[in-house]
Design a binder for these strands. Structure first.
Length: 759
DNA sequence: GAGTTTGAAACT
DNA sequence: CAGTTTCAAACTC
């Protein structure tokens, strides 16, 4: 690893907090996404295209070490995923670093490699001789030398940690061995330092992952980690993780919408530090060096709105039996996100660090990213009562709630469920999925989370539906043997999608309103497979097929279509769609239930994502069923394969197929399509720029601009200094619509200002 | 926007 | 499982 001296750092003060340039470097094409880690035995399907989030994560690599530093801080642009090794580990690789404690200088682990997958995740590996990050953080196991690199140097003489954010093009192997010449490419290096704070120090064995929703790539979030010296190596340590949105955060949304969520691990308690807009949280972890203390994974929705946040924590772990870790991987799939949660019981109560509503005490988190092309934001809340928090994202179509784990008596989950003692369960092995899944889980009390057998959604499950915005409850139907026994531990209200069959992956998509508003007698029994036996009959609100797919049909929805309504197929209620006489709403729940049941009986795979992960050795994506084209040559959008921009496979039954790799027709079309896309992008960029200029012009030239009461409107008012009857260039501007990229200014006839249309 | 083509899903 | 029907989306003009 390269060593960045403090001198170098001091010479480049302007580089600090240079978020824009960093953000630019983060822009990676989708094809640069990281491949699944090799440690993953069997990648799961990627049901849908995913708009990938980026991760800021902190991942300690050591198993036991002393932390004498009191504060640690790192800054990174949002969206950049970082896996940071412990400070001592870092310092051991830097010549200029000053260790903060005597224990730190001993047995300094080396960082053999710094690899960055394409998802901008920086992974600093330890030596192979030590318990690697990989073993504890499968998500960090992706060591694909792509993407942006970030080197974390140790403490300087002034105590400033130095982090080098390297462009993704800077992936020479030498850099991973500490022999790279930093100065050789000065323009590609971003230095981020913390002022007056020691370098990031992550407690041993803990896995931290900080993540935050990102509204814009330019957002900068500061992660502050506070550690206190442990009494002994085996003693508790304090780790405080703070994520602070930088002041230059360009996010325009409310705090709830951005709600940076960071996970961390705190051995005991942390001193609350609650600067404005900071989120401080801590978590109690086991002090057993080899104890991974479970892993908690929560994926933040990487969907369109980065503000969407889903936090789920399930399972608990006996503090004294790390190998019996009853981690409950809760994998959720919506085709775009996968959420995996493994959470351990805390040996001591965790303590939230801030009084802010967004403050969270979190469990150790590790990313499940790095699998496939997915990128994850992993968050684990370790909330104190109230154990339920709802995340409301203004403007979002979805509501999210957090499932939190009780901080006390967490060991009951392990002992209560006989299925949890399945030896096949890997203690800390997270369930890795290669697709992100959005998951909205009904709010459940902490105690109910531990219950082995899900109950019908009655009083136990407290689902909050505050608006007509559909909620989704999506659970994985993937065949995941390691988590299957733990599925019985899902909290009441959770819709289970029992894995069944081999490779027949499905997803249970259940709108939350559907869950919450169904009368109890209307429950649809969750069909359990033979391998998914439970002592108690499981009831939930949707009937699931054997492969775990929740299905809906419109046959009883008085719709004249044999096809599924898109809204329905997505597990949503129809809203502002073109459905006629639609029954896919809350007013027709009984009919909807019938439709679901009928559909499940008829076709268990109707809602299965058509484009999924191909078999091993095949291309990443392929049509699950294959097309059946006859006339289009599979080169028109009639063909589902072509429409999905994938080539036809052996599954297809098409005739005259031209949608294969070497097809000249296909290549020609692709070239044309690419060219067209480039043009569209250029035009869009031009429009955006022009609109921005116009808007800026209006702002600067208009005497007064006040936001109108309506949404997305600008009200242009006459400035007081202009008399009502005086000639005024802008005097007759009325309220104009300001929608999207278009600004249409209507100017009165006596103000012959040229209209500006950007469309 | 209307008409045509197409193929997936439902149906038999 | 194969053939037929239906119909919304894609496509063309």
């Amino acid at each position: 690893m390269d060593v960045v001296s403090p001198e170098l750092n001091s010479l480049l003060p302007d580089e600090i907090m240079d978020t824009e340039s960093i953000a630019m470097e983060e822009e990676l094409p989708a094809e640069h996404l990281a491949a699944p880690p090799q440690s993953e035995p069997e990648p799961l399907q990627v049901p849908m295209e995913t708009e990938l989030p980026e991760i800021v994560s902190l991942c300690p690599a050591t198993t036991s070490m002393k932390m004498t530093s009191t504060d640690a801080q790192c800054s990174t642009s949002s969206g950049t995923q970082l896996l940071l090794a412990p400070s001592n580990l870092i310092s051991g690789t830097t010549t200029s670093a000053k260790t903060t404690g005597p224990a730190v200088t001993q047995n300094l682990p080396k960082i053999p490699s710094v690899t960055v997958p394409a998802n901008h995740q920086l992974i600093i590996n330890k030596l192979s001789g030590t318990p690697a990050v990989v073993s504890k953080s499968p998500g960090a196991a992706v060591l694909k030398p792509e993407g942006q690199k970030l080197l974390v140097a140790g403490l300087s003489k002034t105590g400033q940690p130095i982090m080098l954010a390297l462009p993704h093009t800077w992936n020479k192997p030498a850099t991973t061995q500490g022999t790279g010449d930093v100065k050789a490419q000065p323009t590609q290096i971003k230095l981020m330092t913390t002022v007056g704070k020691p370098v990031i120090a992550v407690s041993s064995g803990s896995q931290l992952m900080g993540s935050s929703t990102t509204l814009q790539a330019q957002q900068l979030k500061t992660l502050q980690f506070t550690k206190k010296a442990a009494v002994s190596t085996a003693g508790p340590m304090i780790t405080k993780l703070i994520i602070t949105k930088a002041l230059n955060n360009k996010g325009l949304s409310s705090p709830a919408s951005v709600a940076p969520v960071v996970t961390g691990r705190v051995v005991t308690q942390s001193t609350p530090v609650t600067p404005p807009r900071n989120i401080t949280f801590g978590e109690t972890i086991s002090t057993v060096p080899q104890n991974t203390s479970g892993n908690s994974k929560v994926a933040i929705s990487p969907l369109k709105s980065p503000s969407k946040l889903t936090v789920v924590s399930v399972a608990s772990q006996s503090p004294n039996s790390p190998q019996k870790s009853v981690t409950l991987p809760l994998s959720v799939a919506l085709g775009q996100q996968i959420l995996t949660v493994q959470q351990s019981a805390a040996t001591s109560p965790a303590k939230a660090g801030t009084s802010q509503s967004t403050a969270q005490t979190v469990k150790p988190v590790q990313t499940v990213g790095g699998v496939g092309t997915s990128q994850f934001k992993t968050i684990i809340p370790l909330t104190t009562p109230p154990n339920v928090q709802q995340i409301q994202v203004p403007g979002s179509r979805f509501h999210y709630v957090r499932l939190v784990t009780a901080t006390t008596g967490s060991s009951t989950a392990q002992s209560s469920g006989s299925t949890n003692t399945n030896p096949s369960i890997h203690p800390a092995k997270p369930v890795m999925m290669n697709a992100a899944v959005r998951m909205s889980v009904p709010i459940v009390s902490a105690q109910t989370i531990k219950q082995v057998v899900p109950k019908p959604l009655t009083s136990a499950a407290q689902v909050v539906t505050t608006s007509q915005t559909p909620q989704r409850l999506i659970m994985p139907a993937t065949h995941l043997p390691q988590i299957q026994p733990n599925l019985t531990s899902l909290p009441p209200g959770t819709v289970l999608a029992p894995a069944h069959g081999s490779g027949n992956m499905g997803y249970a998509v259940l709108p939350a309103p559907y869950v919450t508003q169904i009368p109890q007698p209307a429950f649809v029994t969750l069909t359990s497979s033979s391998t998914f036996s439970t002592a108690t009959p499981i009831q939930t609100q949707a009937r699931l097929s054997l492969n775990g797919q929740l299905q809906f049909t419109l046959s009883e929805f008085n719709l004249s279509s044999h096809r599924y309504c898109d809204c329905f197929a997505n597990g949503e209620f129809c809203n502002n769609c073109n459905c006629v006489n639609c029954f896919n709403n809350l007013d027709h729940e009984s009919e909807r239930l019938k439709a679901i049941k009928a559909c499940l009986d008829r076709n268990p795979v109707a809602f299965k994502p058509k484009i999924g992960k191909g078999k091993e050795g095949e291309s990443d994506r392929r049509h699950s069923k294959g097309c059946n084209c006859k006339k289009s040559g599979c080169l028109k959008n009639y063909c589902e394969c072509y429409e999905a921009k994938i080539m036809c496979s052996s599954m297809c039954k098409c005739m005259g197929c031209k949608n294969f790799e070497e097809s000249p027709e296909r290549k020609t079309l692709m070239h044309l399509a690419d060219a067209a896309e480039v043009r569209v992008l250029q035009q869009t960029a031009a429009k955006t720029k022009l609109s921005s200029q116009i808007s800026d012009l209006l702002t600067r030239t208009t005497p007064a601009i006040t936001s109108g009461g309506g949404k997305g409107f600008l009200e242009l008012k006459r400035s007081p200094e202009f008399a009502a009857d005086s000639p005024c260039r802008y005097g007759d501007m009325a309220v104009q619509s300001f929608s999207g990229f278009s600004i249409d200014l209507s100017v009165s006839s006596r103000s012959p200002v040229a209209k500006s249309g950007t469309k």
